[in-house]
């Protein structure tokens, strides 16, 4: 029998990353620079569309909201993995896992830290959109909350999945932390409706919770109607992917223990 999950160990993981964030320029850039850069770029694009009357109703709102939500999804899954990578780069991994810290406590701490960071990113991106383009995201935020929730759960599943692969295949594949979400993006219908995709690709798109969230987001913005169907389908897929990711993580961790990879990661 292991010890039950202890709050003080989860708090220690959070404390470690709070200390680090104060001095880590990369972390601050990730939280502030990229959300601002994305919003500024897509903001100019929507201005261009408005000026030439190419605009369909709600397009500005859809594009800027999608940029904000994708930024949150991307940051959450990337940061979950980079937090683990930072322990490897700093050769702290052995210290942590030679302590009573359980992997579930470690992941709980990382989820808390990265949820806070993702929310900071949303506030920064939404603030930039309001300052630069007088687009106020916050009135929509409540309507979009169910779809944001689904995005966070899927980001967690993707983060757990990429972390599992890094634990098994080591830092050789660390680029997955930054690139894996890019693989999902074209099929997630972030900036365009699923009807824009070729018919052959649409089943792939529907198999991703992100597609259901962004389709639901567009409908909520254009019609003011929360699609329970899109939320439910996204949530069911989220649960399935999260279970698969956790099973994979446990398998990879067991394999890493058996092959002695945890000590070679330092």
């Amino acid at each position: 029998m292991g010890l039950p999950i202890k709050a003080h160990r989860i708090a220690a993981v959070i404390l470690r990353h709070l200390y680090d964030t104060r001095r880590n320029v990369n972390r601050i850039a990730e939280m502030v620079y990229w959300p601002v850069q994305n919003i500024v770029m897509w903001g100019f694009f929507t201005l261009y569309l408005s000026r030439d009357n190419h605009l369909v109703p709600g397009l500005v709102t859809c594009l800027l909201s999608a940029t904000i939500l994708w930024g949150m999804f991307y940051a959450f899954q990337r940061d979950l993995t980079t937090c683990v990578l930072e322990e490897l780069w700093s050769r702290n991994f052995l210290n942590l896992f030679a302590s009573p810290l359980d992997i579930s406590e470690y992941m709980a701490g990382l989820i808390a830290v990265n949820f806070f960071k993702a929310m900071t990113g949303i506030v920064v991106a939404a603030g930039t959109a309001w300052l630069c383009y007088t687009y106020n995201f916050f009135p929509f935020a409540l309507t979009l909350l169910p779809f944001m929730f689904n995005l966070v759960i899927f980001a967690l599943a993707v983060g757990v999945f990429t972390t599992a692969l890094i634990i098994r295949y080591t830092t050789r594949i660390q680029t997955l932390a930054w690139s894996f979400a890019g693989l999902l993006m074209p099929f997630s219908c972030v900036l365009y409706p699923i009807s824009s995709l070729p018919h052959a690709l649409q089943p792939i798109a529907w198999s991703l919770p992100t597609t259901h969230s962004f389709e639901g987001m567009r409908r909520a913005i254009v019609d003011g109607h929360i699609s329970i169907e899109r939320f439910r389908a996204g949530l069911l897929l989220d649960v399935a992917y999260l279970i698969l990711a956790i099973v994979l993580f446990r398998l990879m961790l067991r394999s890493a223990h058996s092959r002695g990879l945890l000590v070679k990661l330092v």
């Binding site: 404390l15 200390y19 700093s90 210290n95 330092v266």
Partner: peptide, 21 residues
């Protein structure tokens, strides 16, 4: 093995003190 480079000596030890309760 080492400790995270951007934390001070005291901060690193405080993290582990919390981990060990």
């Amino acid at each position: 093995v080492a400790f995270p480079a951007r934390l001070t000596t005291y901060e690193n030890l405080m993290v582990f003190a919390r981990l060990y309760g």
